[in-house]
Each structure stands twice: as structure tokens, then as C-alpha cells.
């Protein structure tokens, strides 16, 4: 479905990605693991159009989308839920969800999608008129995911959804991601919490210094001594 080939991204003199290649097939959860600064977030930003690659190709269903704008990518069904959640803090939960469906011009369809998100994440329904910034960290992450879902993604890209959350909440978030995937949405999951990510992912890629150094089915990665040592702890 999604294919990155030899992707380079530079921030001034810094090369954030150096020949990154990876694929995501329809229906998968693919984990992208690695340390801070390995290029995980940059890879997502390149796909969603926030940064323009200096070399390489991105294709979606075989069609080249390298350098496409964020609205074009959202319209094509690729939705990026950014690191740090980036909830619109003084807007209500409902307004945040409505913004997730900004490109949905049919009002009735937008309401149906928001209702589906409320079904999936009932806490958001309870807090629909509260300002996004007043939610707990876990609720904000759920809102960020729900906001992404309203756009109707075929591919949902999540950047560090576990960041700053208590272990129990991390589990709940990962379960929600698995449910979303089971309902037919492909997921590209960036995580520093490799353990949590590999529990739900089908395959994983390990990034180091802007390139993939290791890729394998999730279970194999979770058992790989190099991964255990570097990312899973003893």
C-alpha cells in the first residue's frame, strides 16, 4: 500500500533520513522503532507532506505521492496523528473531532463519523463539550486518534501514542489501535516503547541514523537479542 524508497530528508545541514526504505501492506500494523533522533517522526512527516524529501520516492498504491501537500495526503486517506498529540487545546472535544473531518463536506456524513468515534471511545462522548486541553493525557491521546479517524483514513500513522502515559493507559491505547486495525485500517506505528508496539504489530522496522537497520515480523524482533538489548531492556 505504502512504499518508501531510498528516502532522504535534510534539515539544513542535518540529514534526518538517509536512504530510508520500507513498505506497509494493506491491513498490517507496522511498527517503526528506534531511539530518539533515529528519524522515525521525520519518516511520518515526509509521508504526510509536512517535510519535503530531498531524494527518494514515496508511493501510495503504486501512485507516486512524493512531496504531496498534507491536504492531498489526507484526501488520499493517509492520516498522521502527530507526536505530542497536538490537540487544539481551547477548542472542545467535539470541535477537535469536527476538524479531523475538515475535508468531509457532507454534514450528515461528518456526524455519522463522529458518532462512530464516540462509540469506539466513549470517554470522548462524555467529554464532548469540554475543552481539549482539560483532558487527561490518555484522553488527549484518544482524542488525537479519534480526530484522525474522523478523516476516514485507510492508513493511520501514529507517532508515539504511548508517550507520557501510565502503563495501564498504554495498554488501553494499544488495544484501541488493534481494534482500529481489526476494523480494516492499516496502521504505521512509531514508538519508543518497543515492547508495547511489538505486542500489537505484525511487522517491525528498526531505524538508526535515518535508515532501516533491521526488519522482521514482530515476534522475531521481540525475540532478537539485539533488539532486546537496545530497545526492550533486560
Amino acid at each position: 500500500m505504502l512504499e518508501l524508497t531510498d528516502l532522504d530528508v535534510r534539515y539544513g545541514a542535518v540529514r534526518a533520513l538517509r536512504g530510508l526504505s520500507l513498505t506497509v501492506a494493506e491491513g498490517e500494523i507496522v511498527a517503526l522503532l528506534g531511539n530518539n533522533g533515529a528519524g522515525k517522526s521525520t519518516a511520518l512527516a515526509a509521508v504526510s507532506g509536512l517535510v519535503r524529501p530531498s531524494a527518494g520516492r514515496i508511493t501510495l498504491d503504486g501512485r507516486e505521492v512524493t512531496g504531496a501537500s498534507p491536504p492531498a495526503m489526507v484526501a488520499a486517506g493517509v492520516v498522521h496523528v502527530p507526536e505530542g498529540r497536538r490537540i487544539f487545546s481551547t477548542l472542545t472535544v467535539r470541535e477537535n473531532l469536527q476538524l479531523g473531518g475538515y475535508l468531509v463536506r457532507d454534514g450528515a456524513e461528518l456526524e455519522r463519523r463522529i458518532a462512530r468515534v464516540y462509540d469506539l471511545l466513549p470517554r470522548l462522548a462524555e467529554r464532548r463539550d469540554q475543552q481539549g486541553g482539560t483532558l487527561s493525557g490518555g484522553e488527549q491521546q484518544m482524542l488525537a486518534i479519534g480526530r484522525g479517524l474522523v478523516a476516514g483514513p485507510r492508513l493511520l500513522m501514529l507517532d508515539e501514542p504511548s508517550m507520557g502515559l501510565a502503563p495501564l493507559i498504554v495498554t488501553a491505547v494499544m488495544d484501541v489501535i488493534r481494534d482500529i486495525n481489526a476494523a480494516g485500517t492499516t496502521v504505521l506505528l512509531v514508538e519508543q516503547n518497543a515492547k508495547a508496539a511489538l505486542r500489537i504489530a505484525h511487522r517491525g522496522h528498526v531505524l538508526d541514523q535515518g535508515a532501516v537497520t533491521l526488519h522482521a515480523p514482530a515476534a522475531e524482533l521481540a525475540a532478537d537479542p539485539r533488539v532486546i538489548e537496545a530497545y526492550l531492556g533486560a
Binding site: L50, V74, T90, L91, L99, Y102
Partner: peptide, 23 residues
């Protein structure tokens, strides 16, 4: 309105606004 929401979203976080598909 939808336009007004987009304006407020940009005021709060232009990057997140772009990720919503807002031009």
C-alpha cells in the same frame, strides 16, 4: 462555521491544522 473552526485551529497550531487537511 467550518471556516471559523479552521481559523481557530490555525491560530492554535498551524502544523496540526495542516494535518487535518486544512489548506
Amino acid at each position: 462555521s467550518r471556516q471559523g473552526r479552521a481559523m481557530r485551529a490555525i491560530a492554535l497550531d498551524p502544523v496540526a491544522a495542516r494535518l487535518m487537511g486544512i489548506d
